[in-house]
């Protein structure tokens, strides 16, 4: 048995400030597995202090011009360096992505929202972080780059396990692109943690397209049911055709809860998570349908 010590200071690393995206990619390519981009550091720095992450090289991307929220054709493009607080009061998010806007309110505390970036949150892939769930819910593409060029990875294929993504060594998230939903769509996102700002015990997000009286198409994401945010295709099918006034939300919640096998840990038992997810599903559906009715 080997004693690992009780670290609270990071292992030694070298710091590099990237002056351009090309420079950052060059450095990341050079360091491979041993290099990590750093933006707000809200996840990576604690991991380094615990020595759970021990990159030999940090590439600081804070000076790169890759922040911003803009519409490009039929997609909303969010640059990797966009800080979480930027979504509040952004008219594009408010107009097209009510579930996204709900979700941002649950992200940590003001300091975390001021510093944390979408690229960081997506790359870190905490199992119950909000932005990965939002990306999966909205069928986003994760745009990644390396010196070899650009790849677009569907969010539903990006998150592989807790803290594990499809990113290859040398690659960096540069943007997240969400298809713009039709005007007759709405959504909601709800989560519950032990304290406000905590990692969620579970969360559920819903988007709906509708004809004014019934759901025509639905998407649902859940965190806390598995090691990464998952979609719920059977619930999406179930919801299609349900009336907005009584969408059988409770039944949908129970149906979904029966299909999952959540983890059991010292914060929450599997039974509790299942019960909670049933309830959150019910509420997210009810809220989305209420919003749909209010819109028309």
């Amino acid at each position: 048995m080997v004693v690992k010590g009780e670290p609270m200071r990071p292992a030694s690393f070298e710091y590099h400030r990237a002056t351009s995206l090309e420079h950052a990619l060059e450095l990341l390519s050079q360091f491979g597995d041993d290099g990590r981009p750093i933006a707000g550091g809200q996840s990576l720095v604690p991991m380094m202090n615990f020595r759970l992450a021990r990159p030999g090289h940090l590439v600081d991307i804070n000076k790169l011009p890759i922040a911003g929220i803009e519409v490009l054709g039929k997609t909303l493009r969010i640059g990797a360096l966009t800080r979480h607080e930027a979504y509040f009061g952004n008219p594009l998010i408010a107009r097209h992505f009510p579930a996204f806007l709900d979700a941002v309110h649950y992200i940590g505390h003001p300091t975390i929202r001021r510093n944390g970036s979408i690229g960081g949150s997506i790359s870190h892939a905490d199992p119950t972080a909000e932005l990965p769930a939002v990306a999966v819910l909205h069928d986003a593409d994760i745009v990644v780059r390396s010196t070899a060029g650009e790849r677009r990875i569907p969010a539903t294929e990006f998150f592989l396990s807790a803290y594990v993504t499809a990113l290859e060594p040398g690659e960096m998230v540069v943007a997240v692109e969400l298809p713009l939903p039709p005007e007759t769509s709405t959504g909601s996102f709800i989560e519950l943690g032990e304290r406000s700002g905590d990692f969620a015990t579970a969360s559920v997000g819903i988007t709906l397209e509708h004809d004014g009286s019934a759901v025509t198409k639905a998407a649902m994401v859940c965190s806390g049911a598995d090691l990464f945010p998952i979609r719920a295709p059977e619930i999406e099918d179930f919801l299609a055709g349900q009336p907005l006034i009584d969408p059988k939300a409770k039944e949908a919640g129970q149906l979904f809860a029966e299909s999952i096998d959540p983890v059991d840990d010292h914060i929450a038992s599997a039974d509790y998570r299942r019960g909670l997810i049933a309830q959150l599903t019910q509420r997210a559906i009810t809220t989305a349908c209420t919003r749909a009715l209010g819109k028309k």
Binding site: M1, V2, V3, K4, G5, P7, M8, R9, A11, S12
Partner: peptide
Amino acid sequence: EDAAEHVMVEY
């Protein structure tokens, strides 16, 4: 702290 990681204790 770095050095402490190099002390091996066998139990």
